[in-house]
Design a protein around this nucleic acid. Structure first.
Lengths: 353, 353
DNA sequence: ATGAAAGCGCTAACAG
DNA sequence: CTGTTAGCGCTTTCAT
């Protein structure tokens, strides 16, 4: 049905070996034959079947990407950058969304195994490294992004979330805030725990007492929950002049809640988020936040993939298992925009408006 | 290196044919052997190499998705939904981002050809159907999304953008606006042309003259351009009470520009966008916009893929070329939020604030 | 009810 | 400099 190397060989009147070598430049072929082959390829509109290579125990030039959701702007961008970098190295991406679902994640990993991907980049959900260890044992490099899995050693690229939140809280303190509320993630995960530690430490380092009352675990996820949380927070600690949310979308919810309560941002209450999603730069007000350096994450992850896949070392796949794993930590960047200012104590007016 | 069907056969003490049949349930295998095989599979942690199937002129169970950018929230969501649906049918997605670049798009299509994808879903950039026609001629179904390519017949899923903009402008008129500015896309593409036609028709149907002066082609793309455009627009037609942007992000720019000029939204000027990106629902104010029904687009696209790939009809791939192509048009939904209201003529106050 | 063996499209070792 | 050929892992006839 489809055009094969055989058809090309026939058309050009040469052997299939010659065709193969012309295509891959794997050995010298005389000028005339080269021309004949190239013409035949063009004439028949031939595209080599890349998958065959994998049969010969070679690489599939396919990398698996397993993450919670590409519809999230941050992950979407991450995906795009990864795809483009790996493309330049001749690799394609097979993507699976897990929706934070452990079962889907396991299915995704199985698929990757059947598609014989050369490596896997994963933003894992499960905290069980069982499956991933299996994969790694088969000689398929696994690169973990953003989260680590206890007891499972793998190359990792992650963000220093402790420092991210530390910095932004410190910034709030520096511009004069001393009563800072914190909206925490509902379910504790390694990165959100780091964030809250950063909040706590920033306060302590500035001699401000850490008060449980000013920390609220959001009732659910994201926007709506941000609204509810900030209202609850402000009701139980009404001297708060700044709110720090664990996530941009939660921060948007917080802003909405604050606005609904009749306060002004940032005049009455400052708000900060976390993640640096693109739309935080175009919102009104523009959100002060910590930017997860997605491009760096993507580049480092790709570096690791390439390194594991293309070093001479790794001719023997077993080397991969043995070689020391890397743990790359990227420092996120504080970006100050319009949702924060020094406290101005306009809040009282708001009450009487 | 990796575990193969042979290893399993050895371990179970059966032939590889038996192993294959147990895995695929393609013929009856006695209970005992079945058990032995299954145990061997488990013991060796064997995963069949899915790619081999393609060698035997069967399907790769891989679908290519070629689109401008997964970092865009709308496309990111589209990607996610497609991936999940196709996964249920046993297909995986290979994704290529084109960044609206014609060269990259061509490379993407070539890659898809080499990976022998079973079908291609594309949000095309190029208006040249050459390459896609080639692909289609090879028997690979092509499903076009959102945009059509003149002179190239393919299954298509698209949005009735004419009606989308028609409806939202009509809504503005209904609530009392009669001087409505329009920010158009810089470079004309089929869908943005449809949008402007919708704007024009809505005015005409309401007996409001269409004035070139109130239409501005944005200077560049998206946010910054929205700011500039709305300022230019308001300067040359200062009786405008509502602004209709061709794209949500442009609308955000417009809102910012309007706010910068000292007007209030929606009291002085109403603003509407187009696309219904998720963050338009959490912004302040929430944006009135037209929602592109991404889920429907994705579902219809997948339906077409499955239909082309799995109907008995298509056992002979040539049938695909011949069979009548479908053109599915989805009606977008107007969603009214906070960025619009009846004109209140507060604008004069704003000037003197 | 099961096994043997022929290929699928291509690469690379071997032959000339 | 070029051709012949043995596989890669698996599915699927064809035998038994």
């Amino acid at each position: 049905m489809a055009v094969t190397i055989k058809d090309v060989a026939n058309e050009a009147g040469v052997s299939i070996a010659t065709v193969s070598h012309v295509i891959n430049k794997t050995r010298y072929v005389g000028e005339e034959l080269t021309d004949r082959v190239n013409n035949a390829i063009k004439k028949l509109d031939y595209y080599p079947n890349q998958l065959v290579g994998s049969l010969r125990n070679k690489k599939t030039h396919t990398v698996g990407l397993v993450l919670p959701s590409t519809s999230n702007e941050t992950f979407g961008l991450f995906t795009e950058i990864i795809q483009k970098i790996l493309f330049k190295f001749g690799y394609n991406l097979i993507i699976c969304n897990t929706s934070h679902d452990i079962v889907l994640e396991e299915e995704a990993f199985n698929t990757m195994l059947m598609k014989k991907v050369d490596a896997i980049i994963a933003v894992p959900v499960s905290s069980n490294g069982q499956k991933l260890r299996e994969i790694q044992d088969k000689g398929v490099p696994v690169i973990l992004v953003d989260r680590v899995i206890e007891g499972f050693e793998a190359d990792t690229v992650r963000v220093d979330n402790f420092k991210g939140t530390y910095d932004i809280v410190k910034y709030l303190i520096n511009i004069g805030h001393s009563s800072i509320g914190y909206i925490d993630r509902k379910v504790a995960q390694s990165h959100s725990i780091d964030q809250r530690m950063g909040y706590k430490k920033a306060l302590e380092d500035s001699g401000i007492p850490y008060e449980e009352m000013k920390v609220i675990a959001s009732s659910g996820y994201d926007y709506e929950s941000g609204i509810d949380s900030v209202k609850a927070l402000l009701n139980r600690a009404n001297n708060i002049t700044a709110v720090c949310a664990y996530y941009d979308i939660t921060a948007f919810g917080a802003m909405r809640g604050i606005l609904d309560m009749g306060y002004h941002i940032p005049d009455d209450i400052s708000v900060v988020g976390y993640d640096g999603m693109p739309f935080t730069a175009v919102s009104y007000p523009r959100l002060t936040t910590v930017i997860t350096p997605v491009d760096k994450l993507a580049h480092e992850a790709c570096n690791l993939v390439i390194k594991r896949l293309e070093t001479k070392y790794n001719q023997d796949r077993n080397k991969i298992k043995v070689e020391k794993k890397e743990d790359i930590i990227i420092v996120p960047e504080l970006i100050i925009r319009e949702s924060t200012s020094s406290p101005r104590n306009h809040k009282l007016y708001a009450f009487h408006e």
